[in-house]
Write a protein that binds this DNA or RNA. Structure first.
Lengths: 149, 149
DNA sequence: AAGGATTTATTGCAAAATACAAGTATTTAA
DNA sequence: TTAAATACTTGTATTTTGCAATAAATCCTT
């Protein structure tokens, strides 16, 4: 009998592999870390560097350098916040938006392929379940936050 | 409206963070990569180095060195395969088994906390869904295998 | 059975990722 | 107004990573 952890561990690993192999877009080889960053910058509204670093649970100094790479690749732009000049807000460039969108489509296409092995009802159940899981994880104090230390 | 990819991306990230912060066991600070390795070595029956590397989708040279670390930490032992002396089979040491088990319990405890925010029915649905997802992912040729290149 | 191809794993690099410590610049607050 | 706090960057050292090249064992073809 599979433990709960085992189920999640395996699914998470498979999804991670998908992320790893997805994608080379527009001549850019995007690492999983970069893919996560593009994803989050796209999702959040003009996030600060610290916000994204915290969301992803990485050290801010490491993250600062990751951003520098993405700026050099012309995928992200950094704008000083007018109300607080210590802060830099991040946004995708046009090219960055294109890359992020393409990755998104690729990933969804792969996931659609997975869902093709289920009935429509099963697919809906799975999606509802993941949503449930995300909501519950957000509520839990112990689990799954970017806890430090 | 959240895309399929978005749902999985967020859940996967949260689970990854959990893995990252879980656990310091018996004086050992286990990295997520090491945790994955212990998990897989525990699951598979006397796997070879290549088998695990392939499962986890990492380069075999990187993996070879990871194993060396874990051997130094006395968590894994390497035995030459009598039927093919090129191959080394891996197994957990007593201490490694203890560490792996402890991590497993920790992770399950965290997940139980998450499930405490659901009804029993919802929990069962979620678990069935993850199982479904794993089966479908295993069937898919495109998705989620340790595809190289 | 011999010899070349294949497989398994390990090292030699060099590049990239990571994080602690220290630093700069700005803002908050006492 | 000046000390503390915050946001971010840079210095430095360690670790991780992976491509080449290598060594050793096995497989395969004739």
């Amino acid at each position: 009998m599979e433990s709960t952890r085992e189920l999640f561990q395996i699914m998470t690993r498979r999804f991670g592999l998908l992320n790893k192999n997805c994608c080379t877009v527009g001549g850019h080889d995007i690492t999983p870390v970069q893919s996560h960053i593009l994803f989050e910058v796209d999702r959040q509204h003009h996030p600060s560097i610290q916000q994204i670093a915290e969301t992803l649970g990485t050290d801010i100094t490491t993250f600062s350098r990751q951003i520098q790479s993405l700026i050099k690749m012309n995928l992200i732009k950094k704008t000083p916040d007018p109300t607080d000049r210590r802060v830099s807000t991040l946004a995708l460039t046009v090219e960055g938006k294109y890359v992020a969108t393409t990755i998104d489509h690729q990933m969804n296409a792969y996931l659609d392929d997975v869902f093709s092995y289920m009935t429509e009802f099963e697919k809906e159940t799975v999606l509802r379940s993941i949503k449930l899981m995300n909501e519950a994880m957000a509520k839990s104090d112990y689990c799954c936050k970017p806890m430090l230390g």
